[in-house]
Amino acid sequence: MNIFRFSGDMTHLISILVLLLKIYATKSCSGISLKTQELYALVFLTRYLNLFTEFFSVYNTVMKLVFIGSSLVIVWYMRMHRVVKLSYDKELDTFRHYFLVVASFVLALLVHEKFTFQEIFWAFSIYLEAIAILPQLVLLQRSGNVDNLTGQYVFFLGSYRAFYILNWIYRYFTENHFARLISCISGLVQTALYADFFYYYFISWKNNKKLQLPA
């Protein structure tokens, strides 16, 4: 464990807490893409297949349970909660995210570390996470103004993977034989997807204006 990875995990946790706060406090999920939340639930379920087979540390196990649990709770809130589901932007959240799932799975079948069940699903989860934010970014552009908590959610979610990139650089120099290119390249793609959001987020923060994404 290094400070970059720990910061990344904490930033990721904060993003989830901000999202839960928004949904719980405002009893609304307007501006949140259910499809992105479903993709993230799938990412965690397919990435942590070793949850019960390999034990690294209490921290590792607890965080995996928190990520899986919170993503399922958020999907439940947006699909089933009698009040929250009314504010879901169903007609705006129309990204065909099944294509993202299929594309990630096909790529995982082609590019993986070892052709084993767990490695294929691990690579799948890495590729899927890199593009899981797309429905959310499309929804933000369509819904025009972004409320603060939603903007902060996307900001922290995008930042966490940037910390992981620093972690991979750190591991490369300290553990030398660190070879996992799959994560590095996917992580770079994932962070790049947020680039324009970060730009508009910074502009809105500098001018102290509401976050406006160009349509």
């Binding site: 990875r5 570390e113 992981y164």
Partner: peptide
Amino acid sequence: TEGASLKDEL
């Protein structure tokens, strides 16, 4: 070590 694969990462 090669074994330090990323499985210990979240």
